[in-house]
Write a protein that binds this DNA or RNA. Structure first.
Length: 578
RNA sequence: GCCGACAUAGUUCAGUGGUAGAACACUCCCUUGGUAAGGGAGAGGUCAAGGGUCCAAUUCCCUUUGUCGGCUCCA
């Protein structure tokens, strides 16, 4: 399949080149579900894709062979003398390179390819979209125009894929968030800032209550810290320099807005920054007290709302926002406790996934390491990094995590273990993160008194289980397609009285269901209409009560996803719920 | 930020170089009902914002803001 996808990329390039010789070629690989090709100097609109697709099908039907040739680098330079990006790519290649000929179209390419275009079903692919993409993926390079295509072995598979996309749209948390009235984002408030509606806020609270309960059970203590902090704090932590790309500019906090309007002179300027992370505040609490080695480990947790200035094109629903609440915690401990603490966090993370219905096999785990060729991105010395990285690797192996190593993905202060969950459209989002930090303790002169009565520097672990409430809830909505399990549903039971004379009985039932989240739909609407509303609201249990139920002292219950009714006593219903 | 698409009622969407329409939701009236929409009436829009072209712009052009799909970045 990969050969077919890659070959389609060449066919696409041939179709584009044929239209205009001045269009320059970037690269054109096969990707998951399809292929792309990058072009420079290409002016194209989405509606042009149909025509290009037709040209491609034309070539396919002509049954053109792919011919491979090994040539010297010298010869390749000559062949691609009018292709600046190919020449650039040649620089990194060996002396002998391979080229592929497709009719009169020649491409620098390692292959492999299909033998001839007739191996492709002309109805098995589709040009999907146009996007910009930086050459070699580097923001500093020129942005080329990328054409994406999807391709499968036959039309049925292609249709299946397109149908999957359709279905994915239906479980998109942005759409469900609106339908289920959970949250919204609006221009006047600001991009990337979430407004939680009552049902969404309730869902949030249910999750938070669970989170707090489990943290207290697992030996964490809760702390609370402010949303802004003095610039000096952030300079000391290193965020001011290493993280400034993601931070909002300072607030001039030595005067009021009114005074600023009046251009009143500021005697002493004091600047505050919205926090992009919670760590420095937690460290400030640590440093305000004396610590003995006997006190360790200290585990301090906070659902801290942080603000990051994300580039606006990066924002996306609940999964990428500018203000979000991290379910953060910092663990301070001795060196001999680090491994054990890391393992405990991993267990906690796995427990959380299980609790929310995520299978660990659907979560991808990465060990994010520093890029040692790019040292200016990180604080701290090599020895510290080597130690931190090897400890994380060891722990990940011992807890039998199925993880991949990723170079260059570390935080500026240390390596991390990242847990990523895919959304409905199969895009990966980082959720849990476990970071071993040996830098901030040094920067903040953190100490404890060891058993010899000497000052010693503690180790620090940063961790978040959800990552952020916003992102986790977004993924949760998609995971369940809005059909939250009973314990998470904002409304668990909807009671529908058949007519006005059954209202009192409906409220009596509600009273008996005290402790559950119950709504009585007593508006003057028909029963089918109220059923429809409750079904579309994805409410786990719908109860109807009328003459029959009053006479029998029962309820009629309809479970989400089922159409049959069950008449039972309220006590038997409650037994089912517990 | 960059490339491309888009922005019309609370929501989902039609539509037009001569200042707008549907469905659902909302309000009121009738209907008191049995498992996915009972009937009727009404209200609701600076057609994202600002500028330009034109006798005339919601429609064409430019800028800004926001949304969507990518790139880069990231919880």
């Amino acid at each position: 399949m990969e050969k077919i996808r890659h070959s389609l990329a060449h066919i696409l390039a041939k179709a584009i080149k044929e239209k205009n010789e001045n269009i320059k070629l970037g690269i054109g690989p096969a990707i998951e579900n399809g292929f792309y090709y990058d072009f420079d100097n290409l002016e194209i609109e989405e509606k042009d894709l149909k025509d290009i697709e037709k040209r491609m099908k034309h070539f396919i039907r002509q049954n053109i062979p792919f011919e491979k040739k090994e040539v010297s680098k010298e010869r390749a330079r000559e062949l691609f003398k009018n292709e600046p990006y190919k020449l650039e790519l040649l620089k990194d290649l060996d002396d002998s390179v391979s080229i592929y000929k497709l009719g009169n179209f020649i491409d620098l390419c390692a292959g492999p390819h299909i033998k001839s275009t007739n191996e492709i079903d002309p109805n098995s692919f589709k040009l999907e979209k146009i996007a910009g993409a930086y050459f070699k993926g580097d923001e500093k390079n020129k942005m080329l125009t990328r054409i994406y295509g999807v391709a499968f072995s036959n039309k049925e598979e292609l249709d299946q894929y397109l149908k999957f996309k359709e279905e994915a749209k239906k479980r998109d948390h942005r759409i469900l968030g609106k339908k289920l009235n959970l949250f919204h984002i609006e221009e006047e408030v600001g991009a990337g800032l979430i407004l939680w509606h009552p049902k969404g806020a309730l869902l949030y609270k249910i999750i938070e209550d669970f989170w707090i309960k489990k943290h207290l059970e697992n030996g964490y203590e809760l702390i609370r810290t402010p949303h802004i902090g003095n610039r000096k704090l952030w300079e000391r932590s290193g965020h001011f320099g290493f993280y400034s790309e993601s931070m909002y500019p300072p607030l001039e906090a030595s005067q009021s807005l009114e005074e600023a309007f009046e251009k009143k002179e500021v005697k002493e300027s004091e600047q505050f920054l919205l926090k992009p992370m919670n760590c420095p505040f937690h460290i400030a609490i640590y440093n305000s007290m004396q610590h003995s080695y006997r006190d360790f480990p200290i585990r301090w947790a906070e659902n801290g709302t942080v603000y990051r200035f994300e580039k606006k094109g990066e924002l996306s629903g609940l999964t990428r926002v500018r203000g979000f609440t991290q379910d953060d915690a910092h663990i301070f401990c001795r060196k001999d406790q680090v491994e054990d603490e890391l393992k405990k966090v991993i267990d906690f993370i796995l427990y959380i996934y299980k609790s929310f219905g995520f299978d660990i096999n659907s979560v991808n785990v990465y060990l994010s390491l520093r890029d040692s060729l790019n040292k200016e991105k990180y604080v701290g010395d090599d020895q510290g990094w080597d130690l931190a990285e090897s400890v994380l690797r060891k722990v990940a192996k011992e807890t039998k995590l199925n993880f991949k190593e990723e170079v260059g993905e570390a935080a500026f202060y240390g390596p991390k273990l990242d847990f990523k969950i895919k959304d409905a459209l199969q895009r990966e989002w980082q959720c849990s993160t476990l970071q071993f930090d040996f830098n901030l303790p040094k920067r903040f002169n953190m100490v404890f008194i060891n058993e010899k009565g000497e000052k010693e520097e503690p180790f620090m672990i940063h961790r978040a289980l959800f990552g952020s409430f916003e992102r986790f809830i977004g993924l949760l909505i998609e995971h369940y397609a809005g059909n939250f399990p009973f314990w998470l549903s904002p409304v668990q039971i909807s009671i529908i009285p058949v007519s006005e004379k059954h209202r009192d009985y409906a409220y009596k039932i509600k009273e008996e269901l005290k402790g559950f989240r119950v709504e009585v739909k007593d508006e003057a609407e028909t029963v089918p209409k109220k059923i429809r509303e409750a079904v579309m609201g994805k409410i786990p249990y719908i109860i109807t009560v009328g003459d029959k139920e009053i006479k029998n002292n029962t309820i009629s219950m309809r479970k989400r996803g089922q159409q049959n009714l069950e008449e039972l006593s309220i006590n038997n219903f409650i037994k089912k719920l517990c």
